[in-house]
Design a protein around this nucleic acid. Structure first.
Length: 586
RNA sequence: GGGGUCGUAGUUCAGUUGGUUAGAACGCCGGCCUGUCAAGCCGGAGGUCGCCGGUUCGAGCCCGGUCGGCCCCGCCA
C-alpha cells in the first residue's frame, strides 16, 4: 500500500504519528512560503502543510494542481486552537509534509468537483462521470447504496433467504414493457430478451423448492424515461413459498423498518406502515401512490350539493358524477392568477373546471361563494373542517376524474407550500388492487399487475362474468408519492392460470405458446407462493434526499436512454451485423 | 408519440429595439505573498454565441429546421 492511513480518518489521537497518505489535490492554497493542500481520498479531506526549506517537498507542492494524484509522507500534528477548522472532521489536526511525490498530474477538470454539482450541466456531468463521481455527495450516495444492499443481504440471509442468480438472456413476451433484445448469432433470426424482471424465474424457483429466494436483480425496460425511471434499474427481487399476503408484507416491512435506523438514522418513519386499499387511495388521494407526508385528503361533498341550485354542481351530480374538494392551508389570499394556474392544472388532469371557496378576514370569497346558499357553505365548512385562511378547491364530475385532478393539485400545493416534512419517510401499503382494467384502445381487459397474480379467492366465481369487479392479492409499497415496490400472491394452479389467460383474450394454444413453461411447471406440484420487488434505486433516492435516481446510480443514462460517457448506443460495423444476421433499414 | 424548458468562455450566467471590438463571477495561466482552509493582491489568456438554412445593408438576438440536456403527459404486464 502506498498509504498507511486514509485522509478523512485522521484525528487528534493520531498526533505525533508518521503517516503516508495518497489521494487527490482537492484545493491548494499557496502562500509563496507556506503551501496548504487539502488532500482528498474516499474517506474525506485532510490539510497538508508544506513549509519552505523542506527541500523537494516544497518545490513539488508548488507544482501540484487540482486533482493531481499525490503520495506523501509526513507527521500528524495538532493545530493551535485558533487555527482549528470546525467545519472539517479532520480540522483539529494537519499533516506536516516531509516528502511529496506526484503519482500522476491532471488537467484542470472540465466541471467543478468541489461543490454539490446540482448547478452544473448534467450532460457535462454524465460525459465526465468518472470525475463527477469524485464529488463528496455522489460518493456518499454510492456508499449509502452499498450499505443498504449489504444490510439487505445480511437481513434476508438471517431469515433463511437464498440469493440465487437468474439469467440475463431469456425469452421475449409481448406483454408488459418493451423488451431490450439480444440477437442470436448461432440461431439466425432469433432473439433473446433481457429480463424486465426475473418474475417467471423466481416463481419457477419456488416450484423447484427453494422456498425463500432473493436477488439484487438488474431489470431492463425499453420505455420512455423519467426522473425515477432508467432503462436498466435494480430491484430487490424476492419470493416466498407457503405464505399469504401478510407474510410477505411483514418481511418487507420488517426489512425496511430495520434498515432505516441503521443507514439513515435522521429519517422518521410511521410504524406500522399504514394500509389503504387501492379504492381508498384513489378516492382520497387521486393516485395509487399517495404522498402521506401531509394531509389534505380529498373529501367527497356530493351529498351536500345534491339539491343545490348551483347548476355547476347539481348537473354533474344528476348525471352520476360527484363533487370533491381539497382544502389548502394559508391559501385564501391566492391571487386570481394563482387560481387560474391551479385551474389549468386540474384541467390538464381531465377536470372540466374548478370552483373555489376562500375563508378570508372579509368573509367567504371564491368563485363558488355567490353560487351557494349560506347553509350549503356552512355544511361544506363542517365537512372540510375548513378554517380561517383556508382555500377549498372543488371539482365536479366523474369520481375518478375529480379525484385524479385534485390529487395532482394536492401535489402542487405540497411543492409550493412546502407541506412535506423533509425528514419523513411516509411508507404505506396499498392493497386490494383490481385484477384487470379495460384497455380502451385495444378493446380488451388487461392486467394491472401481471398475469400470474392471484385473484382474491372470493372473486374467482366472477372472473368470467364481471372481470372489472375482481380484486387481486396484489400490493404496493409506496413512500412519499413514489411506488417503491410491487408484489402479489401468485397463481400456483394451472386451471386458474389458464382461466386468467382466457379472460385476457388468449386462446389456450396462444397461452401455451407464450407461457407453456409456466403452465407445465404448475402441473408438477407448485407450492402456493408470493413475493415482491422493491426498487433499490428509488429507495436509495429517498434515503439520500435526491431529486432523481440518476444521482444514486454510478453510470446512469440520459432521458433519451443514452450513455454520454461511452457515447452509447453506437452503430455496429457491417461485419458484426452480418455475423448476427442483421440488416439496418432506412 | 405529444407538450414545456434550456443551449453564449472550462463552469455558472448577463447580453437592451437587430447595429462598433460579445461581458461578469468562478476556474485556468503567470507574478507577489509564512497560517490559509471558498486564502488574498496584481496581471493575463480564453468565444464556430449547439448545428444547418432563411430574412436583413447588418443576426447571439427574428423565422424555419435539426441535434443535445432536463421536466411533464402518453408509455412503464
Amino acid at each position: 500500500m502506498l498509504k498507511t492511513h486514509n485522509c478523512g480518518e485522521l484525528r487528534l489521537s493520531h498526533a505525533g504519528q508518521e503517516v503516508s497518505l495518497a489521494g487527490w489535490v482537492h484545493r491548494r492554497r499557496d502562500h509563496g512560503g507556506l503551501i496548504f493542500i487539502d488532500l482528498r481520498d474516499r474517506s474525506g479531506l485532510v490539510q497538508i502543510t508544506v513549509q519552505p526549506g523542506r527541500g523537494e517537498a516544497h518545490s513539488v507542492a508548488e507544482k501540484a494542481r487540482g486533482e493531481f494524484v499525490l503520495k506523501l509522507d509526513g507527521v500528524v500534528r495538532p493545530r493551535p486552537e485558533n487555527l482549528v477548522n470546525p467545519n472539517l472532521p479532520t480540522g483539529e489536526i494537519e499533516v506536516l509534509a516531509d516528502s511529496i511525490e506526484i503519482l500522476n498530474p491532471a488537467k484542470a477538470p472540465p466541471i467543478p468537483l468541489d461543490d454539490d454539482g446540482y448547478r452544473t450541466d448534467e450532460g457535462q456531468r454524465l460525459k465526465y462521470r468518472y470525475l463527477d463521481l469524485r464529488r463528496a455527495r455522489l460518493q456518499e450516495n454510492i456508499i449509502l447504496r452499498h450499505k443498504t444492499i449489504k444490510f439487505i443481504r445480511d437481513y434476508l440471509d438471517r431469515l433463511g433467504f437464498l440469493e440465487i442468480e437468474t439469467p440475463m438472456m431469456i425469452k421475449s413476451t409481448p406483454e408488459g414493457a418493451r423488451d431490450y433484445v439480444v440477437p442470436s448469432r448461432l440461431q439466425p433470426g432469433r432473439f433473446f430478451a433481457l429480463p424486465q424482471s426475473p418474475q417467471q424465474l423466481k416463481q419457477l424457483l419456488m416450484v423447484a423448492g427453494y422456498e425463500r429466494y432473493f436477488q439484487i436483480a438488474r431489470c431492463m425496460r425499453d420505455e420512455d424515461l423519467r426522473g425515477d425511471r432508467q432503462p436498466e434499474f435494480t430491484q430487490l427481487d424476492l419470493e416466498m413459498s407457503f405464505v399469504d399476503r401478510d407474510d410477505v408484507l411483514a418481511v418487507v416491512e420488517g426489512l425496511v423498518t430495520a434498515l432505516i435506523p441503521v443507514v439513515t438514522p435522521h429519517k422518521r418513519i410511521f410504524e406500522p406502515f399504514p394500509r389503504l386499499s387501492y379504492a381508498e387511495a384513489m378516492a382520497r388521494f387521486g393516485t395509487d401512490k399517495p404522498d402521506l407526508r401531509f394531509g389534505m385528503g380529498i373529501v367527497d361533498i356530493t351529498d351536500t350539493l345534491r339539491r343545490s341550485e348551483a347548476r355547476v354542481f347539481a348537473e354533474p351530480i344528476a348525471s352520476g358524477g360527484t363533487v370533491r374538494a381539497i382544502v389548502a392551508p394559508s391559501s385564501a389570499g391566492s391571487s386570481r392568477k394563482e387560481v387560474d394556474t391551479m385551474t389549468d392544472l386540474v384541467k390538464a388532469a381531465g377536470a372540466k373546471a374548478m370552483a373555489t371557496l376562500a375563508w378570508t378576514a372579509e368573509g367567504v370569497k371564491g368563485t363558488a361563494a355567490k353560487l351557494l346558499k349560506d347553509s350549503e357553505v356552512s355544511e361544506i365548512v363542517r365537512r372540510l373542517e375548513a378554517k380561517q385562511g383556508d382555500l377549498a378547491c372543488m371539482v365536479a364530475g366523474r369520481a375518478d376524474v375529480a379525484s385524479k385532478a385534485l390529487g395532482a393539485l394536492r401535489l402542487d400545493f405540497r411543492d409550493r407550500l412546502n407541506l412535506a416534512p423533509p425528514d419523513l419517510l411516509a411508507f404505506a401499503w396499498v392493497i386490494d388492487f383490481p385484477m384487470f382494467e379495460w384497455d380502451e384502445e385495444e378493446k380488451h381487459w388487461s392486467f394491472i399487475h401481471h398475469p400470474f397474480t392471484m385473484p382474491k379467492q372470493e372473486h374467482l366465481d366472477i372472473l368470467e362474468t364481471d372481470p372489472g369487479a375482481v380484486l387481486s392479492d396484489a400490493y404496493d409499497l409506496v413512500c412519499n408519492g413514489y411506488e417503491l415496490s410491487s408484489g402479489s400472491i401468485r397463481i400456483h394452479r394451472r386451471d386458474i392460470q389458464a382461466r386468467i389467460f382466457r379472460s385476457l383474450g388468449y386462446s389456450d394454444e396462444e397461452a401455451y405458446r407464450r407461457f407453456g413453461h409456466m403452465l407445465d411447471a404448475f402441473e408438477y406440484g407448485a407450492p402456493p407462493h408470493g413475493g415482491m420487488a422493491p426498487g433499490i434505486d428509488r429507495l436509495i433516492m429517498l434515503l439520500a434526499d435526491e431529486p432523481n435516481i440518476r444521482e444514486v446510480i454510478a453510470f446512469p443514462k440520459t432521458a433519451s436512454a443514452a450513455d454520454l460517457m461511452f457515447d452509447a448506443p453506437s452503430e455496429l460495423d457491417p461485419k458484426h451485423l452480418r455475423e448476427l444476421h442483421l440488416q439496418i433499414l432506412e
